[in-house]
Amino acid sequence: MTAASLKEVLKPAMEEHRAVAGLVVLGWEDARAYVEAAEETGIPIILQAGPGCRAHTPVPIMGKMFRHLADQASVPIVCHIDHGYSVQDCLEGIDSGFTSVMFDGSKLPISENIDITARIVETAHAAGVSVEGEVGLVGYAEGASSANTLPEEAARYNNESGATALAISVGNVHLKTEKTSGINFGALKAIEEVTTLPLVLHGGSGIPVNIRKRLARESSVSKFNIGTELRMAFGNALRKSLTDNQDSFDRIRLLSPTIDAVKSVTIEVIRALNGKPE
């Protein structure tokens, strides 16, 4: 199966009242675990290379790795640049084989955010690549505070940017290790009333599973970014492997147990968003 664009997986998800998981990749083991989970369940996923991943491994290398996994999969796999903060970040992703890029202009004035997104969209769409944008600022658990998405700005972005999907801020927070019920459903409804694009919630690990299910079923939220809970599964499995193999210095042997552990958690995540029982 050829790697899919974001549009190819989000449009059907929105129409069918389900959502797709954007899974944060940091290396080979977790990327492989995510794709194995997608294969086992038959559910499409989005492999995401965020700023941390890109700082650790060059984008062209990540692009080849993502495409290698996606092109051999039997289910649609999107290869996505997450939180591109510049035009160059997005263009490098397009040139490196990614099928989707996110331009994060959430800290910019709305007019500038729209203008830059539209420029990226022109190049991306010519290459068959989708573009995700963000309006409103999603904060961090121990960092910058959030700024909720204003419906009037979301409406402008929806109508003028040409983007495929819109990430919004309605109480979701990045890097939450504990789940909270902080989603502002009224704010989400106000955004839905003036937009037609599939909506995206970053910080999905902080949203309780029952709320994710509800949002996937009842709202325009069609993509949840999931990272922290998967990193926790990886870390716990690695600590156990180090304890169980104290005489080993073979990184392959030490890291291998993390694949099944991350895969197991991923299956639960993507089945819940897809409306299938865990």
Rank of each mutant, 00 (worst) to 15 (best):
G182E: 12
E153L: 10
E134R: 01
T2D: 15
A272G: 08
A73M: 09
S96Y: 05
P208Q: 12
A3F: 03
L150T: 09
A124V: 03
V170W: 00
A141G: 06
M102A: 10
I211T: 14
K107W: 05
D89W: 11
I43R: 02
K213S: 15
V170C: 07
N113S: 01
L23H: 04
E268N: 14
G186Q: 12
L23V: 13
R214P: 01
R156K: 13
F66A: 11
I45N: 05
A154Y: 07
A19C: 13
S106T: 02
E153R: 09
A167H: 03
S111Q: 15
M65W: 02
T180D: 13
N113T: 04
L255W: 02
A31I: 00
E122M: 08
V265F: 00
T195R: 03
A237Q: 03
G136Q: 03
N245F: 04
N225T: 11
E229L: 08
L255F: 12
P44M: 09
V269K: 14
A73P: 10
V101M: 08
P257Q: 12
L215Y: 06
K64Y: 00
D244C: 10
I114Q: 01
S222Y: 04
L10R: 06
R271G: 03
D244H: 03
C90D: 05
L6V: 06
I116Y: 09
V24I: 09
I116C: 02
E278L: 14
I61T: 11
S169V: 05
M232Q: 15
M65P: 05
I259A: 02
V209G: 07
E92R: 11
P44I: 07
P198E: 08
G84L: 09
L150E: 14
A126W: 00
S205E: 10
I207T: 11
F185I: 08
L215G: 02
S241P: 13
Y157C: 01
L150Y: 04
R214Q: 15
M102Q: 05
V269W: 00
V194W: 12
V59R: 00
A124W: 06
A118F: 10
M232F: 12
E15C: 11
A13D: 04
